[in-house]
Design a protein around this nucleic acid. Structure first.
Lengths: 339, 339
DNA sequence: CTTGGCACTCGGAGATCGTGAGTGCCAGGC
DNA sequence: GCCTGGCACTCACGATCTCCGAGTGCCAAG
């Protein structure tokens, strides 16, 4: 059904269309690529590819353009992730190594990724629940007020102010501090409920009520509803492909402003260790049906920290985008794991 | 030179053009607005206004559109800030009062402002240097490592990890904590250098070196180079006025991605208590020469906390935008001052 | 299965043209 | 002196038309 040459023709169509943004015809294709066959033969192959739904016509007397299904086949079987050039690798390194803290790492990464791919870049902050506790500080702001400061292994710092139902003494607080600290230090936040389960029983009777209430607040805010953060850059790149988004720029921008949507994009990955591609209609997000999304997880063990990726027109250079996304994810993962 | 009726004609032109986005002609104008004169007279006035540079022709047989100078006159003399409707005020209140912390306040404000004005909204986080210290906590992470946590009166929380040149004991740290705490509590950050000036002399000889080094780091990161933060929302609204930004959407998006640029926009205000408008070419930022920017300061005393505003096409409803910007600034100011 | 030939299709670029909104100017009227 | 109606003029815009050529599908021969 689809012999090697037909696949080769599909590849050529995708590559040409990606670089020129114009429907590609049989003649031009036979010339530009050394397929060793005549335009007529190419036409026959094209007709077959069209029957199978991999390419389509904008109109009768125009060349062919790939469909989402065509891009899918291209990505799955016809292209391999393009490794970065030495210059690009060096650029990543010099650009990222200047970062002073987590915020800086994330901001630099997202800008870098946007520049490398010339697309919209998205980087998720290291997810709280999958991080582990480097330090947990409890500060007694006022008799009935506590400040919790959590520092994770990735350098993320979160704080919450708690209003207590009752009043605590300084000794109570230092007891709390020790009780939480000893149990959570080094633990992953996702394991926090288990690590803290024996806490109420081990504590002095007097502070048990307030302790359980503190515990529930801590678990709720840090584990059940952890605040996910996202950085975005390169939205201006959407206008570069103005031709790709004739009237659809609006919904794309709208979708990109929704944190929830972005998290969904990055989170919807089965195996976070490999680069993932969602093409056009494959996207579950309404507004992004005209785009493709390339994502990957990052962290010491395949996406343990979070995810990152790019959003661009379906007509994108998948090989290069996948390469950049993978490379940046690796560097960021190493950087944060080593921090 | 410019009698009342000419001004009235200019107002009518601006209002019509803003609402229709089409060049407005003498006949339509004389009909729609009860000027009490004939189209011919209006034409004469238009010619005069054009001579003065307030309006212009796209081409010979088209109506007139305001120039930047025309909008300027309109804003300065012909329009007054439009107070919000009761419904809008209620919307602001209910939308903002649900906020749980500063981050939430800022995020909600910026989205609210974008929705109200249907434009791009920008909100600066309360500036550190102009805030005062509610609490300063020093945590002894490791013998040679300190964590500083600063909570300001606006609820902003900043933290820094300091690597010390030498080793400190717990007593040293608690001495530090007290020394900084007593001097800075309630002080504005901008006054911190003065408040801390006697510190080295008052401290025990032994820890003076490390103390001065801590001090210099604190002052540098919190006062000299305070981290300003900005929230942005509603970029999708730029596409609504696609006609206004034919090919210029690109530079606008690019400009909006630069924190520095946004800070400049918001900071460039002489008197932060009144609503400020920059129209088209008046903008110092290259990429925003095709837009207008409406800004105002917020805080208990006229912009002591920071600024906020909107960015949109020069063809915008200035009265309404100014009203929304002012209203949101007031609510946010009150909210943060009361927190 | 490939290839050259060939008739056919049809979008897009130009060219043409009529229309009408809008203008500037002028002479007469309040 | 200013307003007004009249009038000739301009010119962008949309509709219509034509032409061109890239590209196609099909077929018969290699």
């Amino acid at each position: 059904m689809l012999d090697d040459r037909k696949l080769e023709v599909l590849r050529a169509i995708v590559e040409d269309f990606v670089s020129t943004n114009e429907p590609v015809g049989s003649k031009a294709l036979a010339e530009r690529h050394s397929l060793g066959v005549s335009p007529a033969t190419v036409r026959n192959d094209m007709a077959a590819l069209e029957d199978e739904g991999f390419i389509t016509h904008p109109h009768t007397s125009a060349g062919r353009i790939p469909t989402d299904k065509g891009y899918r086949l291209f990505v799955d079987r016809l292209s391999s992730v393009k490794p970065l050039s030495g210059a690009e690798k060096r650029a990543i390194q010099t650009f990222l190594e200047g970062a002073v803290d987590l915020d800086d790492v994330v901001r630099r990464s997202v800008r870098l990724l946007a520049q490398l791919t010339r697309q919209v870049a998205v980087v998720q902050y290291p997810s709280l629940s999958r991080s582990s506790v480097r330090h947990l500080e409890i500060v007694h702001l006022a008799p009935n007020r506590l400040l919790l400061v959590l520092i994770t292994d990735t350098g993320r710092v979160e704080q919450r102010v708690l209003e207590l139902p009752g009043v605590l003494s300084d000794e109570d607080v230092s007891h709390l501090r020790h009780a939480f600290g000893s149990r959570l230090h080094g633990a992953r936040l996702i394991d926090a409920p288990a690590a803290l389960s024996d806490l109420p029983d081990a504590a002095p009777m007097a502070i048990r009520p307030v302790l359980t209430s503190v515990m529930s607040v801590v678990l709720e805010t840090l584990v059940d509803q952890p605040e996910e953060r996202i950085a975005l850059a390169g939205t201006a790149n959407l206008t570069r492909s103005a031709l790709d988004f004739p009237n659809t720029l609006r919904p794309v921008l709208e979708a990109l402003e929704e944190q929830v949507v972005l998290l969904k994009l990055i989170g919807e990955v089965n195996d976070p260790s490999t680069v993932h591609v969602k093409i056009g209609e494959e996207n579950s997000v309404e507004g992004l049906r005209s785009t493709s999304v390339v994502t990957v997880g990052y962290g010491p063990e395949a996406g343990t920290y979070g995810g990152l990726g790019v959003v661009g027109p379906t007509r994108m250079d998948y090989a290069a985008s996948m390469g950049s996304v993978r490379a940046v994810a690796r560097y960021v993962g190493e950087l944060l794991a080593g921090a």
